[in-house]
Design a protein around this nucleic acid. Structure first.
Lengths: 226, 226
DNA sequence: TAATTGTTCTTCGTATACACTTCGTCCCGA
DNA sequence: TCGGGACGAAGTGTATACGAAGAACAATTA
């Protein structure tokens, strides 16, 4: 209440370090900074137009999130998401996102379902327009929304971070597959609306299996080195 | 090997920020800094005998790990692990550590099993000596070892962080329960040695259910302030 | 050619400065 | 007496500078 208000007012201010972190993540996921690329503090500070301090703080968090690797006294390089860990990521996602689907089914209220349906509808339109970038974006929003509905903050934050990495590895492949996976999304949302946890978990599992299979096909290509 | 040596020498250097982070984590888990307590940068800098910069960088990571909450322009406070999230943590642990047990069963080699058995033996001795602190420590080592054996780096790092939080919330209760849970550990290791993934997953599930039940009993007490 | 030296780049930690918020306190006026 | 605003202290956010130490790489020497 009063606390919430103050929190919101205070939180309105986005520290530079957070903006830098967001920009850095985006740049890495989008491939502007390629795996193995050296990221000196000065260079980043110049790229983002800030001083070194915010950059350093953002780098530490990016390291904790696994986007960069920091070698003591040698600096930061963009992490290399080896295709060997793709299977590992999907194994963990399978455990977490099925739980998220189950919890979401058990806890979703009509407003939540309506929000999911709205995303589905936008996704359908974007697919029709062949707007792949938008489809991929909506795809992410749908998954993150389900995580949020699950109401488990740990699950939400962990899976969110994992999801970002998945997007990083397959930022192109995922966009190409997205239209195809939209049918699975509809089934997932249907299951969540039904309130049947088992069914939602199964739907999530099917979706992840399909995504995993598609991922492995694309895995051969991997990152085309600079 | 000259190369290896130099690498090791380079990596040997522990930046102050990492030392500060480790000390901060420990202080929070041990209850030296209590939930809700204000952590001003100057105060931490003085406590650890360093300047503000390393402290700030450590704080950002601690925030990402969920140990502190940072309010823009108002500073950091120790996070409050509300008992409401205890159930959430166990829900996620259940998904992740059962997977870890299954993978460990499928991938463990004799050396791994021997290491686990050695930990069990040390645990038995410590239990006999009534050395609860040591039992709790061995308990952690066993679980972390299983995570490591699973060979899934994502699983390992995520579950490890979760595990730290569990220890934080129940640093006393867990120590009291540890002797009782040792039987479950033996069954878990037996299952891993057998190479039977299903059996290992079941054993891990049983263990977590028992731990969760014990946790909820203790939950009422919450943090006893010092 | 191989080892050594020297130079340069970069990180790491410290220190300092200053704008801006937030918070608490105090004082004033109703 | 009580409410409200002025004021100052405390603390964060950001920038900047500097020295120390390590790492990388080129140049030099045996």
């Amino acid at each position: 209440m009063a606390e919430d208000l103050r929190d919101k007012l205070g939180a309105q201010h986005l520290p530079l370090r957070d903006q830098v972190l967001a920009a850095l993540r985006t740049a890495i996921i989008d491939g502007d900074y390629l795996p193995g690329e050296r990221l000196t503090e000065d260079r980043l500070a110049e790229d983002f137009g800030v001083s070194r301090n915010p950059v350093r703080e953002a780098l530490r968090v990016a390291e904790a999130e696994g986007f960069v690797v920091i070698l003591p006294r040698r600096g930061a390089v963009v992490a290399s998401p080896s295709s060997g860990t793709i299977a590992d990521m999907f194994a963990v996602r399978e455990r977490l996102e099925t739980l998220a689907a189950r919890l979401a089914a058990e806890r979703a209220n009509p407003t939540d379902v309506a929000a999911l349906r709205a995303l589905l509808e936008q996704g359908r339109e974007a697919t029709q327009r062949q707007d792949l970038a938008r489809v991929a974006e909506l795809n992410s929003m749908l998954h993150l929304r389900i995580l949020q509905i699950s109401g488990n903050p740990w699950l939400s934050s962990i899976a969110k971070s994992l999801y970002l990495h998945v997007q990083w590895v397959f930022r192109l492949g995922a966009a190409e597959r997205a239209p195809h996976s939209w049918v699975e999304h509809i089934q997932l949302v249907d299951a969540i609306e039904s309130g049947d946890g088992d069914r939602a978990e199964r739907a999530a599992l099917d979706h992840l299996d399909a995504a995993s299979a598609a991922a492995h096909e694309n895995a051969e290509g991997g990152y085309r080195a600079r």
